[in-house]
Design a protein around this nucleic acid. Sequence first.
DNA 1: CAATATTTTGCAACCGATTGCACTAGGACT
DNA 2: AGTCCTAGTGCAATCGGTTGCAAAATATTG
Lengths: 335, 335
Amino acid sequence: MATIKDVAKLAKVSPSTASRAMHDNPAISEKTKARVRKAMQTLHYAPDFNAQSLANKRSNAIGVILPVDHHEIFTNPFFLKVLRGISEACYHAQAMVNLATGSSQAELLHSIDIMVTQGMIRRFIVLYSEQNDPILLKLRQLDAQYVMIGKPYQLVNETPYVDNDNILAGSDAAQFLVDHGHKNICFVYNDLKKMVQNDRMLGYQRVMMENGLLINSFELPAQEYPGGRQLVIQYLTQHPEITAFETVDDMLGLRIQQVLRSAKMVTDRQVSIIGFNNSVYSEAAHPALTSVEVFPRRLGNEAAKIAVSLQMSENLSTKLIVPHQIIERHSVATV
Amino acid sequence: MATIKDVAKLAKVSPSTASRAMHDNPAISEKTKARVRKAMQTLHYAPDFNAQSLANKRSNAIGVILPVDHHEIFTNPFFLKVLRGISEACYHAQAMVNLATGSSQAELLHSIDIMVTQGMIRRFIVLYSEQNDPILLKLRQLDAQYVMIGKPYQLVNETPYVDNDNILAGSDAAQFLVDHGHKNICFVYNDLKKMVQNDRMLGYQRVMMENGLLINSFELPAQEYPGGRQLVIQYLTQHPEITAFETVDDMLGLRIQQVLRSAKMVTDRQVSIIGFNNSVYSEAAHPALTSVEVFPRRLGNEAAKIAVSLQMSENLSTKLIVPHQIIERHSVATV
DNA sequence: CAATATTTTGCAACCGATTGCACTAGGACT
DNA sequence: AGTCCTAGTGCAATCGGTTGCAAAATATTG
């Protein structure tokens, strides 16, 4: 591998000049810059990231923070798609992608500590937004920069983020049901501490109110929680008027479908469902789930683009809204 | 952050001695080692990864190579679970996790090139095994080490890998069907260039032959391929004798379920299905899919443990087989 | 044309580790 | 006591970059 010294020698300049030329330092004349560039070309020069990071006290890598390992999360293809988008953008920006996960919050915090203090990673992408998240606090304490996927709870103006308009998405989904003649619609969520879920619910509520309809909501606990099934059955029998569900994730919709079928309610009751995230599996469901596509890959891609362009002491924060789209399938019937 | 010089000063030794003490160099007396260790403690010393990588010409990071971006892959929670396992092991080994993806093979190759030549990453985990994979060739050319998840096609003895016993898993699944009285069983795959699929099919074939049954197989193309549905219908009508499917991934099973239902064949024909990978979604299917759990997180974890312990010029290769387990649900009926 | 201003460049230190080799101290041996 | 080992340690170079500051080269001005 050619080093900067080789380039310097070939271009007949000193390494310092070469370095400055490479970074387009205005102190270097256009003539020498050209010479240096040519030398780089012929030697196939590529900088050593570790040397750079050492000298700069700042790595070229982007840290990616996944939410603390809940079974549910590590099973949701959403994150993998986001990762793919991040990876793509980083590839084009010549940045490395560094993963941070943890099975507990303490572990994750520690991971991040190491990445920053020992790895000199200074830019992160946080793949979720949660209320009072200690991870963000840590990041700030360590003087690291981050962009979020999802709207932040705190420092909304100072934090760069990319998100869907989840309120609008929540509305659109609800409106879709209303347009199909549904009047008694229930919103199903999982954890309202998550901004996504909260926003979608807000959107749902708005549409219901606008149409003078009653608001119903139901918390369906995560997969592994045992009594979940029972809860659904109970809810259904106590609310015979409900004809449609808006579920914050396809997975929840799928589970409701399943309960409906197994409890033999499917025969005597027709229930429509609309979900979010458009997982492959919703296509295979029966009936195939109508779902709101949120373009996770795009979310990741844009977040990474922002992250790599983050300057050392940036103060203006970029916000970007990625559109969503209802994918109509067969789980919503007209009443 | 404390540097090695600070530690050296406090321990009243030179940086070189401190460094050697930290690496348990036998040239250093136990007495000084103890002094150095105490100094490390009191200063909360932690080495700078970039400085280390620079001096060693070898990064502490593990590169993780995902398969080239086929829609199908980036949707399969399997990989996310594997990643989780890798991340966990790396956390305990104080190693960073570096992701490599690409939307084309060229892109992925380039990514890897950069990681090795500019990032000094020398240890990789390859999350799949494919016939004649140029990625592996590249890795070897670059003189990088890798451990595979899945059995390698080439250099089987020289390559460390962790895998399920997919032949056995394939047999077990087939035997499970046979035990339930099925005689006309069809194996459904996707891409036989993938070792997993090939192995599972081999296992299936063995059981069929042992039981004097006919071998049937069927290639169901990836999700996005349009005519897929038609193909299934065609196959089903041409083979009225088939009573059970063994599908190489739950997703394929789900798709077959769906066709069966939508084509109204469900009424006049009862078909059993057993899949692999035990995705969450198979639980939500109707009927819930019986599936072979392969413990992806464990696969990743073990692979990472091997990777971090890889020496600079290791020659013995570790192989590790992770067990599998049939998760019985409701998609297999007794005939 | 000398004096000064301005642009370009290079020297040398530094980032935080690792390591070959030379040096020192102490003990064993003649 | 002098010589030779051996074990333990430190010096200084190195990895491949970046950057403050001074020096050199060139341009501008009176």
